[in-house]
């Protein structure tokens, strides 16, 4: 069985356990879900390494490759967050995204590896990886913010549903979202910095007014505003969560419209 399929299987079982955990709240099930996710991550890593060796670069040039890397970093960030905050109920919402992305990248993996990219340097590989890590962290913060808004809506409407009691507290959701954004922000900052260095080395200029560069800075400022406003001002709570959701819409815009139609130097990340 190919490593990517085995990883996919582990993700699937882990997802089933996370969903079941939401329903039954049994600790051994949560432990099993995390362990299987970790197993899936390990196998996924080997599968990514195979792909990277064939390309002699980080897999970013084709959509399945970059989505696979995105799924892996999403799972990695989520697992780190889960261990740090000791909270597993969000897994039922994050692991489905990991699974779907991993499934897509496995199903549509090209038979022949795409042409090797022009740039092979370690700095470039780090630039790609850090940016995708940032996007995966923002994706988790987005999921957490959506859960926050739903929970908050139920609380204010004085109509908590049956699953309401299974979710983490608002305060914890906010804290987890902030941790995730903090990781993403640092990764994006470093990623942009490395991108500028690579640009200088390859094109001879630090800043080339590429739409991707401009949108990335907008994203950076948007999330920095989220962290600052959500901690110190009257924006804390639902307003900060809305800001986080809007920021992620900009991220999606950057990953789709900007990458596919506007940017000259970025394609799938």
């Amino acid at each position: 069985m190919p490593t990517s399929t085995a990883a996919l299987l582990l993700y699937a079982v882990s997802l089933a356990l996370y969903l079941w955990l939401l329903y039954t709240n049994r600790s051994w099930m949560g432990f099993g879900a995390s362990a299987l996710l970790a197993g899936g991550l390990l196998l996924h890593y080997f599968s990514l390494m195979e792909r990277a060796r064939a390309l002699d670069s980080v897999p970013y040039q084709d959509l399945p490759g970059s989505l696979s890397l995105f799924a892996w970093l999403l799972a990695l960030t989520y697992l780190g967050l889960e261990v740090f905050h000791r909270q597993r109920s969000v897994g039922a919402f994050v692991v489905p995204v990991v699974f779907v992305l991993a499934l897509f990248s496995t199903l549509f993996a090209p038979q022949q590896p795409p042409a090797p990219p022009e740039t092979h340097s370690t700095l470039f590989a780090l630039h790609v990886t850090l940016n995708i890590l940032a996007y995966s962290s923002f994706a988790i913060a987005f999921v957490l913010s959506v859960i926050f808004l739903l929970q908050n809506r139920m609380l204010r409407g004085r109509a908590p549903g049956r699953t309401f009691w299974r979710f983490p507290a608002l305060e914890l959701l906010e804290r987890m979202s902030r941790s995730s954004v903090a990781v993403g922000l640092l990764a994006l900052l470093a990623g942009i910095g490395l991108g500028l260095v690579v640009s200088r080395d390859v094109r001879g200029q630090l800043w080339s007014n590429d739409p991707k560069e401009i949108v990335s800075v907008v994203i950076l400022l948007g999330y920095a505003a989220y962290l600052w406003l959500g901690r110190t001002t009257t924006w804390r709570g639902a307003r900060a969560s809305w800001l986080c959701v809007i920021n992620f819409v900009v991220v999606l815009f950057s990953l789709t419209i900007v990458n596919l139609y506007w940017s000259k130097f970025h394609r799938y990340f």
Binding site: P160, W165, P168, A169
Partner: peptide
């Protein structure tokens, strides 16, 4: 009390 825990943890 359960509602309080859902807000503040």
């Amino acid at each position: 009390v359960k509602l309080a825990e859902q807000i503040f943890g």
